[in-house]
Design a protein around this nucleic acid. Structure first.
Length: 491
RNA sequence: GGUCGGUUGGCCGAGUGGCUAGGCAGCGGUCUGCAAAACCGCGUACGGCGGUUCGAAUCCGCCAUCGACCUCCA
Protein backbone atom coordinates (compact mmCIF):
# COMPACT_ATOMS: atom_id res chain seq x y z
CA UNK A 1 0.00 0.00 0.00
CA UNK A 2 1.15 3.52 -0.74
CA UNK A 3 2.38 5.74 2.05
CA UNK A 4 0.25 8.37 3.70
CA UNK A 5 1.24 11.79 2.41
CA UNK A 6 0.06 15.11 3.77
CA UNK A 7 0.66 18.66 2.65
CA UNK A 8 2.71 20.56 5.20
CA UNK A 9 2.05 24.28 5.12
CA UNK A 10 5.45 24.82 6.71
CA UNK A 11 7.36 23.35 3.77
CA UNK A 12 4.64 24.03 1.17
CA UNK A 13 5.14 20.49 0.01
CA UNK A 14 3.51 17.13 0.32
CA UNK A 15 5.45 15.02 2.80
CA UNK A 16 5.30 11.41 3.88
CA UNK A 17 3.67 11.32 7.28
CA UNK A 18 5.79 9.73 9.96
CA UNK A 19 4.79 10.23 13.58
CA UNK A 20 7.35 11.17 16.16
CA UNK A 21 6.55 8.10 18.22
CA UNK A 22 5.84 5.04 16.09
CA UNK A 23 2.25 3.96 16.40
CA UNK A 24 1.10 7.14 18.10
CA UNK A 25 -0.12 10.44 16.69
CA UNK A 26 -0.68 13.74 18.46
CA UNK A 27 -3.16 15.98 16.69
CA UNK A 28 -4.23 19.48 17.72
CA UNK A 29 -6.89 21.51 15.93
CA UNK A 30 -8.10 25.03 16.65
CA UNK A 31 -11.71 24.79 17.71
CA UNK A 32 -14.44 27.40 17.95
CA UNK A 33 -14.73 30.57 19.95
CA UNK A 34 -18.04 29.92 21.64
CA UNK A 35 -19.83 33.22 21.38
CA UNK A 36 -22.36 32.34 18.68
CA UNK A 37 -24.13 29.53 16.91
CA UNK A 38 -21.95 27.25 14.82
CA UNK A 39 -22.21 28.06 11.12
CA UNK A 40 -21.36 26.33 7.87
CA UNK A 41 -17.82 27.69 8.08
CA UNK A 42 -17.19 25.84 11.32
CA UNK A 43 -18.13 22.56 9.75
CA UNK A 44 -15.21 22.44 7.35
CA UNK A 45 -12.26 22.16 9.74
CA UNK A 46 -14.33 19.95 12.01
CA UNK A 47 -15.10 17.55 9.18
CA UNK A 48 -11.67 17.78 7.57
CA UNK A 49 -9.84 16.89 10.74
CA UNK A 50 -12.47 14.39 11.77
CA UNK A 51 -11.63 12.64 8.52
CA UNK A 52 -7.93 12.79 9.39
CA UNK A 53 -8.64 11.49 12.90
CA UNK A 54 -10.72 8.62 11.52
CA UNK A 55 -8.18 7.72 8.86
CA UNK A 56 -5.22 7.75 11.23
CA UNK A 57 -7.16 5.40 13.49
CA UNK A 58 -8.00 3.24 10.50
CA UNK A 59 -4.29 3.01 9.75
CA UNK A 60 -3.84 1.57 13.22
CA UNK A 61 -2.43 4.59 15.00
CA UNK A 62 -3.36 5.42 18.54
CA UNK A 63 -4.40 9.04 18.14
CA UNK A 64 -4.74 11.69 20.78
CA UNK A 65 -6.87 14.36 19.20
CA UNK A 66 -7.16 17.70 20.99
CA UNK A 67 -9.64 20.33 19.86
CA UNK A 68 -9.89 23.36 22.08
CA UNK A 69 -12.83 25.50 23.07
CA UNK A 70 -11.93 29.17 23.24
CA UNK A 71 -14.04 30.59 26.01
CA UNK A 72 -12.05 33.47 27.47
CA UNK A 73 -12.67 35.77 24.58
CA UNK A 74 -10.46 37.45 22.10
CA UNK A 75 -10.11 41.14 21.89
CA UNK A 76 -12.64 42.87 19.76
CA UNK A 77 -10.41 45.51 18.26
CA UNK A 78 -6.73 46.11 18.34
CA UNK A 79 -5.23 44.79 21.52
CA UNK A 80 -5.46 48.02 23.46
CA UNK A 81 -9.05 49.21 23.63
CA UNK A 82 -10.62 45.86 23.00
CA UNK A 83 -13.55 44.56 24.90
CA UNK A 84 -13.79 40.88 25.51
CA UNK A 85 -15.93 39.32 22.80
CA UNK A 86 -17.68 36.98 25.16
CA UNK A 87 -18.11 39.61 27.84
CA UNK A 88 -19.68 41.94 25.32
CA UNK A 89 -22.18 39.36 24.21
CA UNK A 90 -22.94 38.64 27.85
CA UNK A 91 -23.84 42.25 28.50
CA UNK A 92 -26.09 42.29 25.50
CA UNK A 93 -28.00 39.26 26.57
CA UNK A 94 -27.67 39.92 30.28
CA UNK A 95 -26.14 36.58 30.98
CA UNK A 96 -23.07 35.49 32.83
CA UNK A 97 -20.19 35.02 30.37
CA UNK A 98 -19.95 31.40 31.36
CA UNK A 99 -23.63 30.93 30.55
CA UNK A 100 -22.93 32.10 27.03
CA UNK A 101 -19.97 29.80 26.86
CA UNK A 102 -21.98 26.84 28.04
CA UNK A 103 -24.90 27.58 25.74
CA UNK A 104 -22.83 27.76 22.59
CA UNK A 105 -20.51 24.94 23.57
CA UNK A 106 -23.55 22.72 23.93
CA UNK A 107 -24.96 23.76 20.59
CA UNK A 108 -21.59 23.34 18.89
CA UNK A 109 -21.27 19.81 20.22
CA UNK A 110 -24.81 19.00 19.20
CA UNK A 111 -24.18 20.26 15.66
CA UNK A 112 -20.92 18.34 15.40
CA UNK A 113 -22.64 15.14 16.51
CA UNK A 114 -25.28 15.71 13.83
CA UNK A 115 -22.51 15.97 11.24
CA UNK A 116 -21.19 12.66 12.55
CA UNK A 117 -18.00 14.38 13.70
CA UNK A 118 -16.46 12.22 16.41
CA UNK A 119 -15.72 13.88 19.72
CA UNK A 120 -11.99 14.57 20.12
CA UNK A 121 -9.97 12.76 22.77
CA UNK A 122 -9.76 15.93 24.83
CA UNK A 123 -11.67 19.17 24.41
CA UNK A 124 -9.84 21.57 26.70
CA UNK A 125 -11.19 25.01 27.50
CA UNK A 126 -9.01 28.09 27.76
CA UNK A 127 -10.72 29.10 31.01
CA UNK A 128 -9.83 25.74 32.48
CA UNK A 129 -6.14 26.21 31.70
CA UNK A 130 -5.37 29.65 33.10
CA UNK A 131 -2.64 28.25 35.33
CA UNK A 132 -0.92 26.57 32.39
CA UNK A 133 -1.20 29.74 30.35
CA UNK A 134 0.33 31.85 33.11
CA UNK A 135 3.22 29.38 33.23
CA UNK A 136 3.58 29.64 29.47
CA UNK A 137 3.67 33.43 29.64
CA UNK A 138 6.26 33.23 32.40
CA UNK A 139 8.44 31.01 30.20
CA UNK A 140 8.32 33.59 27.45
CA UNK A 141 9.32 36.32 29.88
CA UNK A 142 12.12 34.15 31.25
CA UNK A 143 13.48 33.45 27.80
CA UNK A 144 13.55 37.19 27.16
CA UNK A 145 11.01 37.26 24.35
CA UNK A 146 8.15 38.82 26.30
CA UNK A 147 7.97 41.99 28.37
CA UNK A 148 5.59 43.39 30.97
CA UNK A 149 3.86 46.77 30.62
CA UNK A 150 1.12 48.00 32.99
CA UNK A 151 -0.02 44.54 33.93
CA UNK A 152 0.00 43.24 30.36
CA UNK A 153 2.59 41.00 28.79
CA UNK A 154 3.58 41.36 25.16
CA UNK A 155 5.56 39.16 22.86
CA UNK A 156 8.60 40.98 21.48
CA UNK A 157 8.39 40.10 17.82
CA UNK A 158 11.35 42.20 16.75
CA UNK A 159 13.66 40.67 19.30
CA UNK A 160 12.43 37.22 18.40
CA UNK A 161 12.95 37.87 14.71
CA UNK A 162 16.52 38.94 15.33
CA UNK A 163 17.43 35.43 16.49
CA UNK A 164 14.79 33.18 14.96
CA UNK A 165 12.93 33.17 11.68
CA UNK A 166 9.56 34.86 12.06
CA UNK A 167 6.93 34.51 9.37
CA UNK A 168 8.11 31.26 7.87
CA UNK A 169 4.70 29.61 8.07
CA UNK A 170 2.77 32.38 6.38
CA UNK A 171 5.62 33.51 4.15
CA UNK A 172 5.62 36.99 5.62
CA UNK A 173 8.66 39.19 5.85
CA UNK A 174 9.03 41.31 8.91
CA UNK A 175 9.92 44.41 6.89
CA UNK A 176 6.71 44.11 4.88
CA UNK A 177 4.74 43.72 8.07
CA UNK A 178 6.19 46.95 9.35
CA UNK A 179 5.30 48.92 6.26
CA UNK A 180 1.76 47.59 6.41
CA UNK A 181 1.02 48.29 10.04
CA UNK A 182 3.05 51.37 10.76
CA UNK A 183 0.19 53.80 11.16
CA UNK A 184 -2.02 51.68 13.36
CA UNK A 185 -1.23 52.51 16.95
CA UNK A 186 0.47 55.74 17.82
CA UNK A 187 0.06 55.58 21.58
CA UNK A 188 0.40 51.90 22.07
CA UNK A 189 2.10 50.56 25.13
CA UNK A 190 3.59 47.92 22.89
CA UNK A 191 7.19 48.43 21.85
CA UNK A 192 6.32 47.62 18.29
CA UNK A 193 3.13 47.37 16.31
CA UNK A 194 3.98 43.78 15.49
CA UNK A 195 4.03 42.70 19.13
CA UNK A 196 1.02 40.81 20.37
CA UNK A 197 -0.47 40.36 23.84
CA UNK A 198 0.15 37.06 25.56
CA UNK A 199 -1.48 38.28 28.78
CA UNK A 200 -3.79 41.25 28.95
CA UNK A 201 -4.49 43.47 31.91
CA UNK A 202 -8.22 43.61 32.69
CA UNK A 203 -9.84 46.99 32.99
CA UNK A 204 -12.09 47.36 36.07
CA UNK A 205 -15.28 46.76 34.07
CA UNK A 206 -13.92 43.70 32.33
CA UNK A 207 -15.83 40.70 33.67
CA UNK A 208 -13.70 37.76 32.61
CA UNK A 209 -10.56 38.08 34.71
CA UNK A 210 -8.10 35.96 36.60
CA UNK A 211 -5.32 36.80 39.04
CA UNK A 212 -1.78 36.51 37.73
CA UNK A 213 1.75 37.57 38.69
CA UNK A 214 1.11 40.71 36.59
CA UNK A 215 -2.25 41.58 38.11
CA UNK A 216 -5.82 40.67 37.21
CA UNK A 217 -6.19 39.92 33.55
CA UNK A 218 -6.86 37.33 30.93
CA UNK A 219 -4.76 35.39 28.46
CA UNK A 220 -3.99 36.62 24.96
CA UNK A 221 -5.55 34.83 22.04
CA UNK A 222 -2.53 32.77 21.00
CA UNK A 223 -1.50 31.70 24.45
CA UNK A 224 -4.07 28.98 25.03
CA UNK A 225 -3.09 26.91 22.01
CA UNK A 226 0.57 26.89 22.97
CA UNK A 227 -0.21 26.00 26.59
CA UNK A 228 -2.82 23.35 25.92
CA UNK A 229 -1.32 21.65 22.89
CA UNK A 230 2.01 21.09 24.58
CA UNK A 231 0.42 20.12 27.89
CA UNK A 232 -1.38 17.18 26.33
CA UNK A 233 0.81 16.36 23.34
CA UNK A 234 4.30 17.36 24.42
CA UNK A 235 6.72 19.30 22.25
CA UNK A 236 7.19 18.97 19.50
CA UNK A 237 4.01 17.20 18.50
CA UNK A 238 2.92 15.74 15.19
CA UNK A 239 0.07 17.61 13.52
CA UNK A 240 -1.52 20.99 14.06
CA UNK A 241 -4.59 21.82 12.02
CA UNK A 242 -6.93 24.73 11.54
CA UNK A 243 -8.57 27.03 9.04
CA UNK A 244 -6.51 28.92 6.51
CA UNK A 245 -7.67 32.17 8.07
CA UNK A 246 -5.74 31.30 11.22
CA UNK A 247 -2.44 30.94 9.42
CA UNK A 248 -1.54 34.51 10.19
CA UNK A 249 -1.21 35.78 12.78
CA UNK A 250 -2.48 33.00 15.03
CA UNK A 251 -0.37 30.03 13.92
CA UNK A 252 2.64 32.17 13.23
CA UNK A 253 2.39 33.44 16.80
CA UNK A 254 2.07 29.88 18.07
CA UNK A 255 5.32 28.96 16.40
CA UNK A 256 7.08 31.99 17.85
CA UNK A 257 5.69 31.28 21.31
CA UNK A 258 6.69 27.64 21.07
CA UNK A 259 10.22 28.51 20.03
CA UNK A 260 10.42 31.09 22.80
CA UNK A 261 9.27 28.56 25.41
CA UNK A 262 11.00 25.40 24.24
CA UNK A 263 13.79 26.51 21.97
CA UNK A 264 12.48 24.61 18.99
CA UNK A 265 9.51 24.41 16.64
CA UNK A 266 6.45 23.12 18.48
CA UNK A 267 4.80 21.42 15.51
CA UNK A 268 6.05 19.03 12.83
CA UNK A 269 3.18 19.12 10.31
CA UNK A 270 0.90 22.11 9.84
CA UNK A 271 -2.34 21.49 7.96
CA UNK A 272 -4.83 24.14 6.84
CA UNK A 273 -8.26 23.69 5.39
CA UNK A 274 -9.53 26.23 2.89
CA UNK A 275 -12.66 28.27 3.47
CA UNK A 276 -16.24 28.00 2.37
CA UNK A 277 -17.38 30.90 0.25
CA UNK A 278 -20.84 32.15 -0.44
CA UNK A 279 -21.24 33.87 -3.77
CA UNK A 280 -17.47 33.81 -3.99
CA UNK A 281 -16.97 35.58 -0.68
CA UNK A 282 -15.71 34.15 2.54
CA UNK A 283 -18.44 33.13 4.93
CA UNK A 284 -17.72 34.87 8.19
CA UNK A 285 -19.27 36.27 11.25
CA UNK A 286 -17.90 39.72 10.61
CA UNK A 287 -19.27 39.75 7.08
CA UNK A 288 -22.71 38.76 8.28
CA UNK A 289 -23.15 36.32 5.40
CA UNK A 290 -23.00 33.13 7.36
CA UNK A 291 -25.63 30.42 7.58
CA UNK A 292 -25.83 28.62 10.91
CA UNK A 293 -25.86 24.85 10.88
CA UNK A 294 -29.33 24.75 12.41
CA UNK A 295 -30.62 27.02 9.64
CA UNK A 296 -28.91 24.84 7.07
CA UNK A 297 -30.47 21.65 8.42
CA UNK A 298 -33.94 23.16 8.70
CA UNK A 299 -33.85 25.37 5.61
CA UNK A 300 -34.78 28.50 7.56
CA UNK A 301 -32.55 31.04 5.86
CA UNK A 302 -33.43 33.32 2.95
CA UNK A 303 -30.59 31.92 0.85
CA UNK A 304 -31.81 28.35 1.21
CA UNK A 305 -34.32 26.79 -1.12
CA UNK A 306 -34.76 23.94 1.36
CA UNK A 307 -33.08 22.22 4.29
CA UNK A 308 -30.12 19.93 3.80
CA UNK A 309 -29.37 17.02 6.09
CA UNK A 310 -26.15 17.01 8.12
CA UNK A 311 -24.71 14.10 6.17
CA UNK A 312 -25.48 15.88 2.92
CA UNK A 313 -23.39 18.78 4.22
CA UNK A 314 -20.66 16.35 5.14
CA UNK A 315 -20.75 14.81 1.67
CA UNK A 316 -20.78 18.24 0.05
CA UNK A 317 -17.67 19.25 1.98
CA UNK A 318 -15.79 16.02 1.35
CA UNK A 319 -16.58 16.11 -2.36
CA UNK A 320 -14.12 18.98 -2.58
CA UNK A 321 -10.49 18.72 -1.54
CA UNK A 322 -9.90 20.29 1.86
CA UNK A 323 -7.27 22.71 0.52
CA UNK A 324 -9.53 24.07 -2.21
CA UNK A 325 -12.07 26.79 -1.70
CA UNK A 326 -15.62 25.53 -1.79
CA UNK A 327 -18.48 27.69 -2.96
CA UNK A 328 -21.89 27.33 -1.43
CA UNK A 329 -24.96 27.11 -3.63
CA UNK A 330 -28.35 25.43 -3.52
CA UNK A 331 -27.60 23.69 -6.79
CA UNK A 332 -24.38 22.19 -5.46
CA UNK A 333 -26.07 21.07 -2.26
CA UNK A 334 -28.88 19.43 -4.17
CA UNK A 335 -26.41 17.64 -6.42
CA UNK A 336 -24.62 16.42 -3.32
CA UNK A 337 -27.88 15.25 -1.80
CA UNK A 338 -28.73 13.13 -4.83
CA UNK A 339 -25.23 11.77 -5.22
CA UNK A 340 -25.08 10.74 -1.59
CA UNK A 341 -28.43 9.03 -1.91
CA UNK A 342 -27.20 7.02 -4.89
CA UNK A 343 -24.03 6.02 -3.07
CA UNK A 344 -25.81 4.91 0.08
CA UNK A 345 -28.47 3.07 -1.85
CA UNK A 346 -25.84 1.03 -3.65
CA UNK A 347 -24.04 0.30 -0.38
CA UNK A 348 -27.25 -1.03 1.10
CA UNK A 349 -27.42 -3.53 -1.76
CA UNK A 350 -24.02 -5.09 -1.03
CA UNK A 351 -25.20 -7.47 1.66
CA UNK A 352 -27.78 -8.96 -0.65
CA UNK A 353 -25.40 -9.62 -3.56
CA UNK A 354 -24.98 -13.26 -4.54
CA UNK A 355 -21.46 -14.60 -5.09
CA UNK A 356 -20.61 -16.20 -8.43
CA UNK A 357 -17.92 -18.62 -9.60
CA UNK A 358 -15.84 -15.98 -11.26
CA UNK A 359 -15.39 -12.26 -11.01
CA UNK A 360 -15.77 -10.06 -14.04
CA UNK A 361 -14.56 -7.02 -12.12
CA UNK A 362 -11.22 -6.04 -10.62
CA UNK A 363 -12.21 -5.31 -7.03
CA UNK A 364 -8.67 -5.45 -5.67
CA UNK A 365 -7.73 -2.75 -8.16
CA UNK A 366 -10.58 -0.57 -6.96
CA UNK A 367 -9.46 -0.97 -3.38
CA UNK A 368 -5.94 0.02 -4.31
CA UNK A 369 -7.20 3.16 -6.06
CA UNK A 370 -9.23 4.14 -3.02
CA UNK A 371 -6.24 3.90 -0.72
CA UNK A 372 -4.03 5.71 -3.21
CA UNK A 373 -6.54 8.59 -3.25
CA UNK A 374 -6.87 9.04 0.49
CA UNK A 375 -3.16 8.55 1.00
CA UNK A 376 -2.52 11.43 -1.37
CA UNK A 377 -3.17 14.23 1.12
CA UNK A 378 -6.70 13.06 1.91
CA UNK A 379 -7.94 13.38 -1.64
CA UNK A 380 -11.57 12.67 -0.86
CA UNK A 381 -13.01 13.91 -4.18
CA UNK A 382 -10.96 11.33 -6.04
CA UNK A 383 -11.76 8.72 -3.40
CA UNK A 384 -15.47 9.41 -3.78
CA UNK A 385 -15.14 9.23 -7.57
CA UNK A 386 -13.67 5.73 -7.20
CA UNK A 387 -16.44 4.78 -4.82
CA UNK A 388 -18.93 5.82 -7.51
CA UNK A 389 -17.16 3.55 -9.97
CA UNK A 390 -17.86 0.87 -7.39
CA UNK A 391 -21.51 1.92 -7.28
CA UNK A 392 -21.78 0.90 -10.94
CA UNK A 393 -20.17 -2.42 -10.12
CA UNK A 394 -22.57 -3.07 -7.26
CA UNK A 395 -25.62 -2.16 -9.32
CA UNK A 396 -24.45 -4.25 -12.25
CA UNK A 397 -23.88 -7.27 -10.05
CA UNK A 398 -27.28 -6.67 -8.51
CA UNK A 399 -28.81 -6.61 -11.99
CA UNK A 400 -26.98 -9.78 -12.94
CA UNK A 401 -24.91 -7.95 -15.56
CA UNK A 402 -21.61 -8.57 -13.77
CA UNK A 403 -20.42 -11.08 -11.23
CA UNK A 404 -18.12 -11.36 -8.23
CA UNK A 405 -16.74 -14.40 -6.51
CA UNK A 406 -16.95 -14.87 -2.77
CA UNK A 407 -13.49 -13.43 -2.08
CA UNK A 408 -14.09 -10.31 -4.12
CA UNK A 409 -17.50 -9.83 -2.60
CA UNK A 410 -15.87 -9.91 0.82
CA UNK A 411 -13.29 -7.33 -0.24
CA UNK A 412 -16.01 -5.10 -1.64
CA UNK A 413 -18.08 -5.35 1.51
CA UNK A 414 -15.15 -4.43 3.73
CA UNK A 415 -14.06 -1.66 1.38
CA UNK A 416 -17.41 0.12 1.52
CA UNK A 417 -17.90 -0.38 5.20
CA UNK A 418 -14.41 0.98 5.88
CA UNK A 419 -14.49 3.93 3.54
CA UNK A 420 -18.10 5.05 3.42
CA UNK A 421 -18.95 4.66 7.08
CA UNK A 422 -15.74 4.47 9.15
CA UNK A 423 -13.46 6.86 7.27
CA UNK A 424 -15.71 9.28 5.40
CA UNK A 425 -18.22 9.09 8.22
CA UNK A 426 -21.38 8.96 6.11
CA UNK A 427 -24.47 7.27 7.40
CA UNK A 428 -27.99 6.59 6.33
CA UNK A 429 -30.47 9.14 7.59
CA UNK A 430 -33.69 7.76 6.18
CA UNK A 431 -34.98 6.38 9.48
CA UNK A 432 -34.95 9.78 11.14
CA UNK A 433 -37.71 12.37 11.41
CA UNK A 434 -40.45 10.96 13.63
CA UNK A 435 -42.93 13.73 12.99
CA UNK A 436 -42.53 13.53 9.23
CA UNK A 437 -42.98 9.78 9.30
CA UNK A 438 -46.18 10.09 11.28
CA UNK A 439 -47.50 12.65 8.87
CA UNK A 440 -46.73 10.36 5.95
CA UNK A 441 -48.41 7.45 7.70
CA UNK A 442 -51.58 9.50 8.17
CA UNK A 443 -51.68 10.21 4.47
CA UNK A 444 -51.11 6.57 3.61
CA UNK A 445 -53.98 5.37 5.77
CA UNK A 446 -56.25 8.07 4.36
CA UNK A 447 -55.26 6.99 0.90
CA UNK A 448 -56.17 3.38 1.58
CA UNK A 449 -59.50 4.31 3.08
CA UNK A 450 -60.35 6.55 0.13
CA UNK A 451 -59.59 3.61 -2.16
CA UNK A 452 -61.99 1.59 0.00
CA UNK A 453 -64.72 4.18 -0.51
CA UNK A 454 -64.25 3.89 -4.25
CA UNK A 455 -64.41 0.12 -4.00
CA UNK A 456 -67.64 0.40 -2.02
CA UNK A 457 -69.12 2.67 -4.67
CA UNK A 458 -68.32 0.01 -7.22
CA UNK A 459 -69.80 -2.63 -4.92
CA UNK A 460 -66.39 -4.29 -4.91
CA UNK A 461 -66.95 -5.68 -1.44
CA UNK A 462 -63.98 -8.04 -1.63
CA UNK A 463 -61.53 -5.18 -2.01
CA UNK A 464 -63.24 -2.93 0.51
CA UNK A 465 -63.32 -5.68 3.14
CA UNK A 466 -59.73 -6.61 2.45
CA UNK A 467 -58.60 -3.06 3.12
CA UNK A 468 -60.63 -2.77 6.33
CA UNK A 469 -59.65 -6.21 7.66
CA UNK A 470 -56.00 -5.84 6.81
CA UNK A 471 -55.84 -2.47 8.54
CA UNK A 472 -57.69 -3.93 11.52
CA UNK A 473 -55.08 -6.66 11.76
CA UNK A 474 -52.40 -3.99 11.93
CA UNK A 475 -54.24 -2.38 14.83
CA UNK A 476 -56.25 0.31 13.06
CA UNK A 477 -59.83 0.83 14.16
CA UNK A 478 -61.93 1.99 11.22
CA UNK A 479 -65.31 3.62 11.62
CA UNK A 480 -67.52 4.44 8.65
CA UNK A 481 -69.39 7.72 8.96
CA UNK A 482 -71.81 9.69 6.83
CA UNK A 483 -69.00 11.96 5.73
CA UNK A 484 -66.62 9.13 4.98
CA UNK A 485 -64.50 7.56 7.68
CA UNK A 486 -62.49 8.04 10.85
CA UNK A 487 -59.63 5.91 12.04
CA UNK A 488 -57.29 5.55 14.92
CA UNK A 489 -54.39 3.33 15.80
CA UNK A 490 -55.25 1.13 18.82
CA UNK A 491 -52.42 -0.31 20.83
C1' G B 1 -0.43 48.91 -1.25
C1' G B 2 2.25 44.05 0.31
C1' U B 3 1.96 38.58 0.42
C1' C B 4 -0.38 34.18 -1.22
C1' G B 5 -3.89 31.42 -4.00
C1' G B 6 -7.63 30.55 -7.71
C1' U B 7 -9.87 31.09 -12.94
C1' U B 8 -11.83 23.65 -15.88
C1' G B 9 -17.94 21.59 -19.92
C1' G B 10 -25.21 23.93 -17.98
C1' C B 11 -23.80 23.55 -12.29
C1' C B 12 -20.31 21.50 -8.58
C1' G B 13 -15.56 19.64 -8.59
C1' A B 14 -10.72 16.39 -9.48
C1' G B 15 -6.43 16.05 -12.30
C1' U B 16 -2.28 16.29 -15.32
C1' G B 17 3.32 17.73 -20.25
C1' G B 18 0.57 13.03 -24.66
C1' C B 19 -3.35 7.55 -22.22
C1' U B 20 -8.76 13.26 -21.96
C1' A B 21 -11.91 11.84 -12.87
C1' G B 22 -16.52 11.75 -10.54
C1' G B 23 -21.31 13.80 -9.05
C1' C B 24 -25.76 16.63 -10.50
C1' A B 25 -28.59 18.29 -14.66
C1' G B 26 -29.54 17.15 -20.12
C1' C B 27 -30.07 13.92 -24.54
C1' G B 28 -30.50 8.86 -26.88
C1' G B 29 -31.08 3.61 -25.83
C1' U B 30 -32.04 -1.22 -22.86
C1' C B 31 -35.51 -2.79 -19.24
C1' U B 32 -40.70 -1.83 -17.62
C1' G B 33 -48.25 -2.37 -18.55
C1' C B 34 -46.85 3.06 -17.45
C1' A B 35 -43.39 5.37 -14.44
C1' A B 36 -39.23 5.23 -11.19
C1' A B 37 -34.67 2.87 -10.31
C1' A B 38 -30.66 0.49 -12.65
C1' C B 39 -27.47 -0.29 -16.82
C1' C B 40 -25.29 1.28 -21.77
C1' G B 41 -24.06 5.36 -24.96
C1' C B 42 -23.56 10.84 -26.05
C1' G B 43 -21.81 16.13 -25.13
C1' U B 44 -14.81 16.47 -26.17
C1' A B 45 -14.26 21.83 -21.07
C1' C B 46 -9.77 23.88 -19.14
C1' G B 47 -9.75 33.08 -18.43
C1' G B 48 -6.92 35.95 -22.66
C1' C B 49 -2.35 36.70 -25.47
C1' G B 50 2.51 35.18 -26.41
C1' G B 51 6.58 31.57 -25.58
C1' U B 52 9.12 26.59 -24.53
C1' U B 53 8.09 21.57 -26.68
C1' C B 54 7.31 16.60 -31.59
C1' G B 55 3.06 17.68 -28.36
C1' A B 56 0.28 22.20 -23.09
C1' A B 57 -5.57 22.80 -20.17
C1' U B 58 -0.95 20.97 -17.56
C1' C B 59 5.78 24.45 -17.87
C1' C B 60 7.39 29.96 -18.52
C1' G B 61 6.07 35.27 -19.27
C1' C B 62 2.58 39.16 -19.64
C1' C B 63 -2.49 40.71 -19.16
C1' A B 64 -7.47 40.24 -17.26
C1' U B 65 -10.40 38.72 -13.32
C1' C B 66 -11.89 36.74 -8.52
C1' G B 67 -10.64 35.70 -3.65
C1' A B 68 -7.86 35.08 1.04
C1' C B 69 -4.43 37.09 4.60
C1' C B 70 -2.06 41.70 6.37
C1' U B 71 -7.66 43.49 12.51
C1' C B 72 -11.55 39.24 15.55
C1' C B 73 -13.15 35.22 12.32
C1' A B 74 -13.09 28.06 10.83
Amino acid sequence: MSEFIIYNTLSRKKEIFEPLNPGHVGLYVCGPTVYGEAHLGHSRPAITFDLLFRYLKHLGYKVRYIRNITDVGHLVNDADEGEDKIARKAKVEELEPMEIVQLYTNSYRRNMAQLNVLPPSIEPTASGHIIEQIATVQKMIDSGFAYVVNGSVYFDVEKFASVHPYGKLSGRKIDDLYTNTRDLDAQSEKRSSLDFAVWKNASPEHIMRWPSPWGDGFPGWHTECTAMSTKYLGEPFDIHGGGLDLLFPHHEAEIAQGVACFGHDPVRYWMHNNLITINGQKMGKSLGNFITLDELFSGTHPLLEKGYSPITIRFFILQAHYRSPLDFSNEALQAAEKGLERLLKAVSLIDGLQPAEHSTIDVAGLKEKCYAAINDDLNTPVLIAHLFDGVKIINSVNDGKASLNLTDLGILKKLYSDFVFDILGFKSETASGGAEKEEALNHVVDLLLNLRIEAKKNKDWATSDKIRNSLAELGFEIKDTKEGFTWELKK
